[in-house]
Amino acid sequence: MPADAVIGNAAVEALKNLDPHPGVAKPDPVLVADGVVRQFGGLRAVDVSHLEVQRGAITALIGPNGAGKSTFFNVISGFDTANEGTWSYNNQTITNTAPNKLARRGLVRTFQLTKSLSRLTVLQNMLLGAKGQTGENLFSAIFKFSWSAQEQANTKRAMELLGRFNLAQKSADFAGSLSGGQRKLLEMARALMLNPDLVMLDEPMAGVNPALKQSLLDHIRDIREEGTTVMFVEHDMDMVRDVSDWVVVMAQGAIISEGTPASVMRDQRVIDAYLGAHHDDALTDSGQSLTTAEETDA
């Protein structure tokens, strides 16, 4: 799709001319978050004063363990509730909106620990992603003729997507029989069944072997080429450097740096907080204190 590709490139180009500092305004933001705070007891796990995510680009969210990246993802996607703050998607406020509503509006996420539905087949997993199914209404469900045409169309699309992710030959297997890496692929393919505007991938590369990583990177680029915005949390710095157009760095709940991959990796604050091995010990301690706070809270 050349037209979409142009949009994607323009969005990426626009980012290169920005002055990289935390909270910088983007030319065409799909997601805007303001003053988002999530507290666990006395600890501010997330404290993001301002963040904009550029439409059509690939944005990476990095930071040490316990920096609040996954919690931020959970809050934005409706799986956790913020204590303070507002955030909007496509210029509409979505503060503390239920995840199923967000998914229907095109904001779809995956999980750090894959949530493939083990005792459903790979194809059934995919079909669950299709939107607006008549057969999901209790009364239409009984009458197959009312949903079989739609089901066939959805199956066709699901098989195409599975083909792209090299899972087509697995379509009749239980999802529980897939390997960890294949589950990551399935979860990504399933998210695409919803035709999302914005996909939020939580550690898509964790536990994936090197060969599969390369194809996952290609899939993420493909998603962008189709005009979908991608935001992902990742620890694999090679991947971040390779695929992302923009990098956001979090530490202790706050955003400490933003910029293109090259500029972020030169940023002294990022080197101190995350990249530099010398500082790992102190950061690990803060990560542990988060866990302790969560436990006390629960």
């Binding site: 239920a98 199923n100 998914a103 779809v108 949530k115 005792r119 999901e136 919803l194």
Partner: peptide, 27 residues
């Protein structure tokens, strides 16, 4: 009839992992 339908698929999905089904837009 119910369990072979897309409705039944969502129900089985809820059994496996409710959050995953919620992330796919189902109430």
């Amino acid at each position: 009839l119910l369990m072979r339908s897309p409705w039944g698929r969502v129900v089985k999905g809820v059994r496996e992992d409710e959050d995953a089904v919620r992330s796919l837009g189902k109430n």
